[in-house]
Write a protein that binds this DNA or RNA. Structure first.
Length: 556
RNA sequence: GUCCCAGUAGCUCAGCUGGAUAGAGCAACAGCCUUCUAAGCUGUGGGUCGCAGGUUCGAAUCCUGCCUGGGACGCCA
């Protein structure tokens, strides 16, 4: 717990005590004390709406209640500077600023650990994300999924959860057969033969590259082999190559997984029949039209789903149920799936499956990543996996840069669609918010460098009471909020709160920088305190950027 | 037709476990570089929070209905 939380908790306890003491409510009647941080500084450091909440219980006017509470409040204990009653009955607390002095030493001592908490209590969370079919390259939409998932994992880890990142490889279904057929067609085309691509084949450049690679390594030898033998080879070759490419792209995007889970392993280890047995035992299945159905309508879905088709093969859902059973069997407290918006209709049946398997549905959460609209030359570019017309993650990284792409995707809430302007991103102009944040970090580095060169004292006792300028106090308060912001983002699965935070902190820094001079030989004591403040800001910026997975440059 | 997401400033978006005068970036306008990096700062203008009801001391936030945009509704994956 940091100083800010301590102050807040003490205040809450004192308010509760005052309410009881003023006989406004009994301990049982007392609602949870909520302290909010007012947007307007004129409303103090904390504000409580307790008087309004108690109006009904105490049968008194809110402002009267507020008066009673304030009269019974031990202001010394809660280190309150001033209390005001305002508006319909808000109690505004202005805190003594001495607690702010502890923030700098706390941060400097914690170093790169500042921001970490144990909010998650070591709970085990598995996050499955990206999980793109190995039939082509990663594109723009996948990049958003990857950035979101990765930052979510970073944030969860910082907040004290035990996190495992997993990629589910769909290496067993129809799409892999199509991959084989697509590679075959491209292979013959490479050799100059007029062969049509299959109707539902994969038209991306990646498949052409795979065919070229086969030609380079094997020449035309596969034209003489049996078709089944050839397809089997092309399938495996395509799968292996695609996965290598995907893994490489993700690694360069700074996303690495703890485990890559193969769908095939579910077949091999009879996990699918296990899962089906569990569903049958629970009476969740029935036969109809020569197929086996799953009664998901009993569990909140709008129609029942086929598990085993007439031809005896599984639908996509079936191994996926087995996969989720396997995840839960591994003992995670939470499993989070990050899916594209086009899969949202799949949620009810998966939730049904979790319940049918006998697990609490609360353990299962799906984060839907809304579509990314690509704009280029002022026009919306239609993306299509089928025709392969999409901007690849590789191109994005090369043209825009990893920092900018990651930051941009985690600036917005996952359930808002967003427009990605390729020209703007490419332009590397200062419109790009990542530079704003990085610049704040680089600025501080320059100051600290100057401090060293000019021989200002480094370290030693810092007298934080010398930091009295408004912008200094703003910075200190913001710095103190960081651990709570991270914990909040983790708990609510909203990594963009961290991006929001780092931007706000950068704003305060820039504003401070323009208003006050840090290195002042006329005032060595205050300079010393300000250098310490700058170090604390730099560390916090760097830690936050680390969570987002972007670099914190020392020079720009 | 059913379901999911969105609709907030000219544009892109925050804010949504209800709280005081609704925010930021970009764009527009006016200022700030002999002083630690102007990729910065300061200020101004800009809003029926899609519409209509409801819940209550109080609604951008919760509920209902409707409108608009996007997406999903397969024995594809």
């Amino acid at each position: 717990m940091n100083v800010l939380e301590q102050t807040e908790n003490t205040l809450k306890q004192e308010i509760a005590a005052a309410v009881i003491k003023a006989s406004l409510a009994t301990e049982e009647e007392l609602p949870a004390i909520i302290l909010e941080k007012p947007k307007d500084k004129a409303h103090g450091d904390f504000a409580s709406n307790i008087a309004m909440q108690l109006a009904r219980i105490a049968k008194k006017a809110p402002r009267q209640i507020a008066d009673d509470i304030v009269a019974n409040l031990d202001q010394t204990k809660a280190s309150i500077e001033k209390v005001e009653i305002a508006g319909p009955g808000f109690i505004n607390f202005f805190m003594k600023n001495d607690f702010l002095g502890e923030i700098i030493p706390t941060i400097l001592e914690a170093g790169e650990n500042y921001g970490k908490t144990n909010a998650g209590n070591g709970e085990r969370v598995q996050v499955e994300f990206v999980s793109v079919n190995p039939t082509g390259d990663l594109h723009l939409g996948h990049a958003r999924n990857a950035a979101f998932g990765d930052v979510l994992c970073n944030v969860l880890t910082a907040a004290g959860y035990q996190v495992e990142r997993e990629y589910y490889i769909n290496d067993a279904g129809n799409q892999i057969d199509n991959l084989g057929l697509s590679v075959e067609a491209r292979y013959f085309q490479e050799l100059g033969e007029d062969v049509q691509m299959p109707e539902d084949g994969y038209h991306g450049q990646a498949i052409i590259d795979i065919a070229k690679k086969i030609v380079a390594e094997h020449g035309n030898e596969w034209t003489f082999k049996e078709k089944s033998e050839r397809l089997a080879f092309f399938k495996e070759f395509g799968l292996k190559t695609s996965l290598e490419n995907i893994e490489k792209d993700l690694k360069d995007f700074r996303v690495e997984f703890d485990s890559w889970f193969s769908e095939r392993s579910l077949y091999k280890n009879e996990k699918i029949t296990d899962a089906l047995n569990t569903l049958e035992e629970g009476n969740f299945t029935y036969e109809k039209d020569g197929a086996m159905w799953f009664k998901t309508t009993d569990l909140g879905d709008d129609k029942d789903r086929v598990l085993i088709k007439q031809d005896g093969s599984y639908t996509y859902l079936t191994p996926d149920i087995a996969y989720h059973k396997n995840k839960l069997d591994r003992g995670f407290d939470q499993i989070i799936n990050v899916w594209g918006a086009d899969h949202h209709g799949y949620i009810p049946r998966m939730r049904a499956a979790i319940q049918a398997l006998g697990y609490p549905v609360e353990k299962f959460d799906v984060k839907i990543i809304q579509m990314v609209n690509l704009f280029e030359g002022g026009e919306k570019v239609k993306m299509s996996k089928r025709t392969g017309k999409a901007v690849s993650l590789r191109e994005l990284m090369e043209e825009v840069g990893v920092d900018a792409v990651r930051y941009y995707f985690v600036t917005r809430s996952n359930d808002s669609q967003l427009d990605f302007d390729m020209d703007l991103a490419r332009s590397q102009s200062n419109d790009n918010p990542i530079f704003y944040v990085q610049y704040a970090h680089a600025r501080i580095c320059t100051m600290l460098e100057q401090a060293k060169n000019k021989g200002f004292a480094d370290g030693g006792e810092v007298d934080a009471s010398l930091l009295t300028a408004e912008k200094e106090l703003d910075l200190l308060k913001k710095l103190g909020e960081f651990p709570q912001t991270v914990a909040d983002a983790a708990e609510k699965h909203t990594p963009h709160k961290v991006t929001q935070y780092v931007f706000d902190l950068a704003t305060l820094l820039h504003s401070f920088y323009n208003a006050e001079k840090v290195l002042d030989s006329e005032n060595p004591e205050r300079t010393n305190a300000r250098i310490a403040l700058m170090k604390a800001v730099r560390l916090t910026l760097a830690n936050a950027m680390g969570l987002i997975g972007v670099t914190a440059p020392e020079k720009m």
